[in-house]
Design a protein around this nucleic acid. Structure first.
Lengths: 191, 191
DNA sequence: CGAACCGATGTCAGTGTCTGACATCAACGT
DNA sequence: ACGTTGATGTCAGACACTGACATCGGTTCG
């Protein structure tokens, strides 16, 4: 059993993520090479690519955990809830994860918004999340296209709420998610 | 004035798009090099990159036209329509563009669905479309977040309808868009 | 008509991303 | 001790993409 110091400095991924965010913020995503990130983290370029599939992925280390969190919430919710409410309730609960880390999230988002390549990656993460949520709904017996639409609408709500959460200094995710959901209901009710 | 044959074969973009789709279908996206596509089209790699920003973009030549079409429909619609109805009506009208080209669309989509890089590009095109639709709604006086949510919800409807349109052999876009919209209304009405 | 110009293409050299193959070396179990 | 394991390093190479400059029909203008 390893006590605390192995052959290598621990937490290679953490060091890579920190170094990447810092460098991307200083010089902009395109003007940073993977070799530089790796060097800053005390590693080699090749090792970077063993931890992250590509140069973008290093900014999205947390998305798998977020997905598990949301799917878990949906799966664990009471039985008599409607699909869209299941999703919205799960999203509102992400405050547990997000509210503590607003500054870091802002930094990360600033970098992402400035670079189309990173926007693409963010979108596919959200789409993957939507698919996972739809799958969790189906597990609960929700019909296919209702599951997809509920999940997708939920993601739209989340995006609106997330932008406000970043801009805002006080209100928490739960409140903002609820607010955006009410707006969606108003909008889709219109005929 | 040039009659019909210039110094170069005409329609370079069209040739590149055809060659790319054919090669991607034969061997899969990753196993085709840009140099091969260009050679197949009677051009050089460098010229490919003058027409398309990258290897993915060659499959998305039509998305700008689709966006203009939809934005135009939203802008031209009668005055007393609700935001979501504006978007849905525009989407239903895309049959004019799509219904004739189902086979080609299927081929293209098969390639895209098989490669995450291409999925990413598709998603950012849809996101761009959503932003453009939201802008068109704002032009008509719709409030910001209502515009965003209506556009985003509309895109979700479109995606569901489009998948069905590809799978289906008979029903047209208008019908499928209307059907998916009704489902969305049912889902979001649930409380 | 000839010269200057223009626009799409070609040529070439170079940077950076990403991959495969193989080597290293501390920790661990036997 | 000794073989195994797993994270890392080293090296070579394919390929995406870019900047700089050359080419050459067609167009325009004097």
């Amino acid at each position: 059993m390893m006590r605390s110091m192995g052959r290598w400095e621990p937490n290679a991924r953490g060091r890579l993520e920190r170094a990447a965010l810092a460098l991307y913020r200083e010089r902009g995503y395109e003007r940073v090479t993977v070799a530089e990130i790796a060097r800053e983290a005390g590693l080699t370029e090749r090792t970077f690519f063993r931890h992250y599939a590509d140069k973008r992925e290093v900014l999205f280390g947390g998305s798998a955990a977020l997905q598990e969190f949301l799917v878990g919430k949906v799966a664990a919710a009471p039985a008599d809830t409607s699909p869209i409410e299941l999703v919205v309730a799960a999203l509102a609960a992400t405050g547990e994860v997000f509210d503590e880390r607003r500054d870091r999230a802002r930094q990360r988002q600033t970098v992402i918004d400035a670079h189309p390549e990173l926007r693409e990656r963010e979108l596919i993460k959200l789409a993957t999340l939507a698919t996972a949520l739809a799958g969790a709904l189906r597990e609960r017996g929700v019909e296919e296209s209702a599951a997809i639409l509920a999940a997708q609408a939920g993601i739209a709500v989340f995006q609106v709420a997330f932008v406000r959460w970043l801009a805002d200094g006080e209100r928490d995710m739960a409140e903002l998610v609820r607010g955006a959901y009410e707006e969606l209901r108003t909008v889709t009710a219109g005929g």
